[in-house]
Design a protein around this nucleic acid. Structure first.
Lengths: 374, 374
DNA sequence: TTGAAAGCGCTACCAA
DNA sequence: TTGGTAGCGCTTTCAA
């Protein structure tokens, strides 16, 4: 409008570039450079629909933005729009298991696909940190909260109620008041046992985790189911509980193998237990899977693949749970503000067949029952 | 889209406007409730030093803030102060190793201790994502960037130069232009070998990782050093390279044990290799550590502790590297804007003694220096 | 097809 | 010891 000499702060003769102040360029800088208004820049850069900007202007704006290496200030945008494009992710103990990364990865991939980013805080099960973390996320205007436990468990309100859509991963609220996603332990236990029964095993030991955990009880239930389906009797001597570790796998295996009528197959509560079972079996001179078949649970990245022979086991759907959580948060938030009735979701534990299962030797060598192929 | 013909242009309150949108309370709301100015509220809530507010006012403000459950809006604060209290953390492949969590944990703990939070993006080594991630972090005004690789390697500019203080973890720039922190592989290799020499072993095989990686070459160098220190000759037949996995540990072990003059101790390039070595050794009827001692590398959470006997190995300082990165970023940024000369830092790999090392049987039982395999 | 201008919620400068 | 108020950089009516 006011043409003529630009009185702006005493025009400096443009002998060279005059940008000593290391300030990041703003939308105003781009606007000035492209000789348009900030409004126009915003329209162009955000591809706002419903406004028509001439191609020339569009190009000019884009070009100047590039040249200045303009980056929008997310804080300013957030302040204005209150859309943070951020999801808060709180874990209890990231360190304790290698599965943590899978949950995170699943969540992060889903988030990224929706243009969101994760803000992660690991609380090491410290309630103080937990609370501070939740508060911090509210301050940062996250659009939702995910709380992930590192093994399937019941939790009592992980943090004071923040009125933000929340999803619990690998855990659930005692009163089911919060949406949660957990593995289908029963289905997994059933499937694991079924692999063994369909291979012809009739005496199958369950070397379980320690009592009281959802994983333990769920898998036990699945075991019962599969046995019943196969018309097999339940022998309590074959069901043992341990401490989830390799050593308990070792000892439990020795115990059941010492039985007068030992099992021909072992369903281990987790892969670590299976690892111990392998050791005991080898010591006892049993070949896997020829003499004794073994099925694990968890599909532990390392153990299952590297055990010799490689372990047939059930996959815990960590990646999928992380993914589900984010997706649910996002569509839930879009649909009903995340305030719909909380859902308790279960994800299947798929079987991974490797080399640790074969028909029982009794079938092969002794010709009992029907002769197995091979 | 849909809507009344009359948006909120007029101040006329419609008769039945049931739910006033649940707006989060702002500093103004608190000020009003406490009958003070926003300024005062800000002073009180931020414990600003240098201003004196009467105890009564202070209490009143605090009380009202509590009552209203007031949470400062981080975006607004950031916009004003340009202090995001956030550090960007970019990983290449979070999934591939269980070590990722330790780096993250170290970084997060250090960050938390400084009142900062981590914004984590995992790129799965996808350059596109990497670039977008870096851009995104700039937009979010992160105060620094950490790029973490999941195993020790050289990287060529992980992302286009953003002028933000940056630290590389478990990797380094080819041209050393960026500050980095990596494990001291040479020191680790030397120490690992030394454990064996000090136990009296004189024929020590090195079952290394595959050639060309910093870990491989560094540990090899350390092995040479320790041998020289102990006045032991280098026998190239005892040095083998593999593919970092259990199977290569298995095969390499068989190879060296078949030698006319087999080793009495194995230094394995990593714990997975050691895992394979265990299998081979057991198959060959060698007892660990009685017949053959084994030292690993990595202190892999799972393998090292659960192998039977538990594996003596070197710890990779993942947690410490993550921690170092954040601390350096924070003090560096404070001191010189993070623009000081880039430093290439190394962290030691401490020894973890467990049960897989003993004096060679030759010394104990046979009293000779070289023994044929049983 | 484009622009002016009003804030989003907070901090910090300057007054009182 | 307190308060008024000007922006931080952006989006978004409404007007031109």
């Amino acid at each position: 409008m006011s043409g003529g000499a630009d009185p702006e702060s005493g025009a400096i003769p443009t002998t060279s570039e005059p940008p000593p102040p290391r300030r990041r360029p703003t939308i105003a800088d781009v606007a000035r450079a492209a000789s348009v208004s900030p409004t126009t820049v915003s329209f162009v850069l955000n591809d706002v629909v419903g406004v028509s900007i001439s191609d020339g202007t569009r190009r000019r704006v884009r070009h100047e933005a590039d040249r200045l290496d303009y980056r929008p200030n997310a804080a300013a945008r957030l302040l204005r729009t209150s859309r943070s494009d951020t999801i808060g992710f709180i874990t209890d103990e990231i360190a304790s298991t290698p599965f943590a990364v899978d949950i995170i990865r699943g969540a992060q991939d889903a988030a990224w696909a929706h243009g969101k980013v994760l803000m992660i805080v690991n609380t090491e099960a410290n309630p103080n940190i937990k609370e501070r973390a939740a508060a911090l996320m509210v301050e940062r205007q996250v659009e939702g909260l995910i709380y992930a436990a590192m093994f399937h468990q019941e939790v009592t309100t992980p943090f004071p109620t923040v009125d933000l859509p929340t999803v619990l991963v690998d855990c659930y609220a005692a009163d089911r008041s919060i949406t949660s996603v957990v593995p289908d332990e029963v289905g997994g236990g059933r499937e694991a046992t079924r692999v063994l029964t369909t291979h012809g095993h009739r005496r199958i030991a369950l070397l379980n985790l320690h009592r009281g955990m959802p994983a333990t009880e769920g898998r036990l239930h699945g075991y019962h189911l599969a046995l019943a389906e196969a018309g097999l009797p339940l022998d309590d001597a074959l069901v043992r509980f341990g401490n989830n570790g390799a050593d308990s796998g070792y000892h439990l295996t020795r115990q059941v193998m010492m039985l007068p009528d030992p099992p021909t197959a072992l369903f281990c509560g987790n892969d670590r237990t299976a690892m111990g079972a392998y050791d005991a079996l080898k010591e006892l001179g049993c070949r896997i899977p020829n003499d004794v078949s073994v099925v694990g649970f968890d599909n532990h990245q390392l153990i299952a693949r590297y055990l010799r022979p490689a372990l047939t086991t059930m996959t815990l759907p960590h990646y999928e749970m992380g993914q589900w959580a984010v997706r649910h948060l996002l569509v839930g938030a879009a649909e009903d503000g995340g305030l719909g009735a909380p859902v308790q979701h279960q994800l299947p534990c798929p079987l991974v067949e490797r080399q640790s299962v074969a028909p029982p030797i009794t079938d092969l060598a002794l010709g009992r029952h029907r002769a197995a192929p091979n």
